[in-house]
Every structure is written in structure tokens, then in C-alpha cells.
């Protein structure tokens, strides 16, 4: 497995700026996590990977609130992206979400829950089948996955379940940006007496029916998730639709 990887790395490096090429490596976790070998085996099924600085994972070094840790994944420097897996090595539920950019660029902002300090990573599969991995350490006091959600404690969450609000920005520095908030408790199942209850799939389409992006969301995504996408050129409304693991669905139109 080692040999073809190195060839892939050399071929890629030839196409990249020198500084970025120097940071490419196919072994030796730059985040020095004791769990990396496990991650590669379980999350990526042992597939070949490259640690690639073009996979940008932005998160605070210290997360004040382990229930709402903001993460932005930007893999737009990689060309055509097929799939992105976001995971956190030391979370009790490692996988956070997957996204599949179609007409939209490989860019997603969201928030997640962390149980302890951990690397937060994105593994990005390009059309050639190679996984490009980037990430960052987030320090936190933790407890985010085993704390009861506000929703589970409030009386009216059921009437507000899957309510969607959102907005598109068609002018200014954030032109082409879509932000979406969905009311959902996103219960992890790790709190005694509260079963796992979370959004599973979300899709974004444009007015012509073309899919912009598909998301598979897991338990560690924060309560009342907020997603940030870049749709490139704005043309008409965005249709968002989704479903949770109990079969509750939503759909909403976000006008520009």
C-alpha cells in the first residue's frame, strides 16, 4: 500500500505550491493523536490517505461551550470533491457528519458537541479515490455529548421540531452564502433515559431541481443545527429538505 501512495503524493506535489507540497505526507499524523491509526482503520476502512493542508478545518483552539463548537470545513482548494467525512478522534461518537457536494463547493460550516479535547478532522475523497485529511485540535472542558439538551428539558420542543429558518446573501462579501437553522434536539443517546434522536439526512436543491449538496448528520452535531454553505452563483431560492432518525421530515424554501 505504501508504494502507490508515495507515487500519488509525488504526482500531487508537482501540481501544488512548494509550501503546501512540503506539508503533504502520507504517514505520521500531524496532530499526533494516539487514536489516528484507529481512525484510519474504522472511519476510512484503511484506505490510502494523504495529510493535505488544502483541507482546511477551522475551529477555536479552546472551545468555551462544548455543546456548540463551531467548525468550518473548506476543501475548495482540492478541485472536484466526492465526499467529506468529519470526525473527532476522542468523541464517544466519532463520526459527526458526511457531506457530498454536488453543484455547491466543498465548504460547510456547522457546530458540534465534544466530550473532551480532541482533534476534529475532515477526510475528503476526491474523484481519484484518494482521501485527503486535514484537521485541528480543539481543547475543551468537555461533557458536551453526555449533557442533556435544552430541547429535552423544554415543554414546547415537540411543537417546534424541525422548524426551519434560513437566509441567502446575494450581495456583499458573503454573496452566494446560504445559512440554515433547524430546530432539533439532536439527542446523542448518551444521556440516561433520553434515546438518540437526531437529523439523519438533509439535502439542498436549487430552483431548477439541481442538487447543491447532500448531508448525512449524526448525533454529535449540535442541538438546533446551523449550517453554512456557499452556493457559488445565486439563482433563485434554495430548497432544503431532511429527515430525522424517527422519520420526521421537513422542507423549506430559502429565498435569496
Amino acid at each position: 500500500m505504501k508504494f502507490p501512495m508515495t507515487i500519488a503524493a509525488i504526482a500531487l506535489a508537482a501540481l501544488m505550491p512548494a509550501a503546501e507540497a512540503a506539508a503533504l505526507q502520507d504517514s505520521g499524523d500531524p496532530l499526533a493523536s494516539a487514536r489516528w491509526a484507529d481512525m484510519q482503520r474504522t472511519v476510512l476502512a484503511g484506505a490510502p490517505i494523504l495529510f493535505d493542508p488544502r483541507v482546511k478545518v477551522v475551529a477555536p483552539v479552546t472551545a468555551e461551550n462544548p455543546l456548540q463548537v463551531p467548525v468550518t470545513v473548506d476543501a475548495t482548494g482540492l478541485g472536484k470533491v466526492v465526499e467529506v467525512i468529519v470526525f473527532a478522534d476522542f468523541n464517544p461518537i466519532v463520526e459527526v457528519l458526511r457531506f457530498y457536494p454536488d453543484a455547491a463547493p466543498a465548504y460547510l460550516g456547522f457546530r458540534l458537541k465534544l466530550q473532551q479535547s480532541t482533534p476534529v478532522r475532515a477526510a475528503v475523497r476526491t474523484a481519484d479515490g484518494l482521501w485527503h485529511v486535514g484537521g485541528t485540535w480543539v481543547n475543551t472542558v468537555g461533557g458536551g455529548c453526555s449533557a442533556p439538551t435544552a430541547g429535552s428539558a423544554s415543554k414546547d420542543w415537540q411543537s417546534r421540531l424541525n422548524l426551519v429558518s434560513g437566509r441567502q446573501w446575494s450581495a456583499g462579501a458573503q454573496a452566494g452564502r446560504v445559512r440554515l437553522r433547524i430546530e432539533h434536539p439532536m439527542d446523542t443517546g448518551l444521556v440516561a433515559g433520553i434515546p438518540a434522536f437526531h437529523l439523519e439526512t438533509i439535502e439542498f436543491h436549487d430552483a431548477a431541481g439541481q442538487r447543491l449538496m447532500r448531508l448525512q448528520t449524526a448525533e454529535p452535531v449540535s442541538e438546533n443545527p446551523v449550517f453554512t454553505l456557499q452556493r457559488g452563483a445565486v439563482s433563485g431560492p434554495v430548497e432544503a429538505s431532511g429527515r430525522d432518525n424517527n422519520g420526521n421530515t421537513f422542507s423549506a424554501r430559502i429565498a435569496p
Binding site: E64, Q68, S165, G166, R167, R179, L180, R181, E183
Partner: peptide, 21 residues
């Protein structure tokens, strides 16, 4: 400031994104 963004931003963001529909 960092802590306050965590405490206050989600509610302000919710207002900006709309009350829900």
C-alpha cells in the same frame, strides 16, 4: 469576547435567520 460569542451569538443569529417557518 470569545466567550461572549459563544453565549450570545446563537440567539442573535436565530433572529437574523428568521423566527422559523
Amino acid at each position: 469576547y470569545r466567550r461572549s460569542v459563544g453565549h450570545l451569538f446563537p440567539a442573535i443569529e436565530q433572529e437574523v435567520l428568521g423566527a422559523g417557518r
